[in-house]
């Protein structure tokens, strides 16, 4: 996969590129060391959210471009939850980068870049990616139904970004312990931190209270 982004870096004006997975974080990067992997991972996840929001409005969304004073960020979703982004000098050749992204995206879809290779000397501090069990296999069917109801309730509070925020909270919740109803308050607390506003936290609690009670009753 590193070959994918190394091909982009040779384009004049491209400072570096990275591939980020919503669930696994930073997969590969070839930025100068001043760009910390932790920051790149956060940026990638924000770009994924932005891409998802854009997709809700535009079915034919291809790329995102964020033009800052110092640099331009270009992002392309490779597959759902997997995004490639490059940071470029403002004078970069956008047409050339777009064409390269199109070609590399086609190769990615053909499976030519499905391997995960993270050279330690290029991205110090980036963890290797371990094969993960899909969340659906970790969680019981009844708990999945509860989570779905909680996710739907969150959409009434936070709108279109609720899905991403909820999935992110569940991911973090699963990292902290087993997917068990006895830990559901820990998940709610993570979601509350994302909601942030007290009145909305209270509204969310009111919305999910009935489904929590139903679950407990069995």
């Amino acid at each position: 996969m590193i070959h994918l982004i190394d091909e982009l870096k040779v384009i004049p004006g491209v400072i570096g590129a990275s591939i980020v997975s919503f669930r696994e974080g930073l997969k590969v990067a070839n930025f100068p060391s001043i760009f910390k992997p932790e920051r790149l991972s956060v940026v990638g996840k924000h770009l994924l959210k932005l891409y998802s929001a854009g997709r809700m409005s535009f079915d034919d969304l291809s790329d995102l471009t964020l033009n800052f004073d110092e640099s331009v960020v270009v992002a392309r979703e490779l597959e759902k939850g997997m995004l490639l982004f490059a940071i470029c000098d403002p004078t970069f050749n956008q047409n050339l980068l777009t064409m390269s992204l199109n070609l590399l995206h086609e190769e990615y879809k053909l499976g030519n870049f499905s391997d995960v290779t993270i050279p330690a000397d290029v991205t110090p501090g980036v963890k290797s990616v371990e094969p993960s069990i899909p969340i659906e296999q970790k969680i019981s069917a009844s708990l999945q139904d509860l989570l779905l109801a909680m996710k739907e309730a969150l959409s009434k509070i936070l709108g279109p970004m609720a899905g991403f925020i909820f999935d992110e909270a569940v991911e973090e919740w699963l990292e902290l312990g087993p997917p068990d109803f006895v830990r559901i308050e820990a998940l709610i607390e993570l979601i509350n931190q994302e909601i942030a506003e007290t009145d909305k936290v209270d509204s969310y609690r009111q919305l999910i209270s009935p489904v929590l009670k139903d679950f407990q009753k069995g």
Binding site: V42, F58, D60, N67
Partner: peptide, 23 residues
Amino acid sequence: LSGEIMSNVGFSYCRYISFNRFN
């Protein structure tokens, strides 16, 4: 989200964001 990205990378000002479409 662009504000979050800006602060994480250390950029100073966002001129504009473009949602590029195939059409």
